[in-house]
């Protein structure tokens, strides 16, 4: 695949929880080399959309495909292409960092030297050396988040979906994770959700804002900023998401 190929295609994606429409007819394509920042108020449907694309939540209407594999009809193929950091970075607290990463690597089908190499790579990239043999339960929030991130990049996926990857990190760690995202962006399609508007400016090539399950903005972060007379992202964000 070359830069510019569509890696994630979402077409008319809809999700109902009972009578509540959480995601309402969202369509977007993410190409290789893109870092898409997914923005929106709490409860706008960011996580729900991500959960449908990663195959966790069943889809009510519409379609989602990853690297050409429909997530409903070919879930296993689609899932092998995705690295996913779920919201809140859930991890097995009873395992050590290395034990956990080895488990994920094995279930991803890695073995022998490749497994060792990839686990070492992820530990190196996220700087997890100090906590390699510590049970995950005893780690700080920042380390837990980074273990979750490491788990997502183990199999060098073509698509990375990260739900609030920098939540709970200190400014240095945030910077480091952003650099990592930028570095990996060259040969992947990356979707990150965030509340931090500066983050979109810092790492994303494209900003998508959703409110009440619908896309209200889809353009570059620069154009998002241009929409505001004051040049303040917070103002534009409020303008777009508080329409009602």
């Amino acid at each position: 695949m070359t830069t510019g190929d569509t890696m994630i295609s979402i077409d008319g994606l809809t999700k109902d929880f009972g009578s509540l429409r959480a995601v309402d007819n969202i369509s977007l394509d993410v190409k290789k080399g893109e870092v898409l920042g997914f923005l929106g108020p709490n409860g706008a449907g960011k996580s729900t959309t991500m959960k449908m694309v990663t195959g966790y939540l069943p889809i009510t209407g519409g379609k989602a495909a990853v690297c050409g594999f429909d997530v409903e009809n070919h879930p296993l193929e689609a899932k092998t292409k995705i690295g996913y950091l779920p919201e809140g970075a859930p991890l097995y607290g009873d395992m050590t960092t290395t034990g956990f990463l080895n488990f994920i690597a094995e279930i991803r089908g890695l073995s022998g030297e490749t497994k060792q190499k990839q686990v070492a790579y992820a530990i190196e990239k996220l700087q997890l050396h100090p906590v390699m043999n510590q049970p995950i339960d005893t780690l700080s929030k920042g380390f837990k988040r980074r273990v979750g991130f490491a788990q997502a990049i183990l199999h060098d996926p073509e698509v990375l979906i990260l739900d609030e990857p920098t939540d709970g990190l200190d400014p240095n760690q945030k910077h480091q994770v952003r650099e990592l995202i930028k570095e990996m962006a060259t040969d992947k399609a990356i979707v990150i959700s965030t509340h931090i508007l500066e983050e979109v400016e810092a790492v994303c090539t494209r900003a998508v804002i959703i409110a009440e399950g619908r896309i209200v903005f889809d353009d570059t972060p620069a154009n998002l900023k241009a929409q505001s007379s004051s040049g303040n992202l917070d103002d534009v964000f409020r303008q777009l998401t508080l329409v009602n």
Binding site: K79, I82, P86, I107
Partner: peptide, 8 residues
């Protein structure tokens, strides 16, 4: 969620 988004 982690478990069910793994390819298994």
């Amino acid at each position: 969620e982690l478990l069910l988004t793994l390819p298994t």
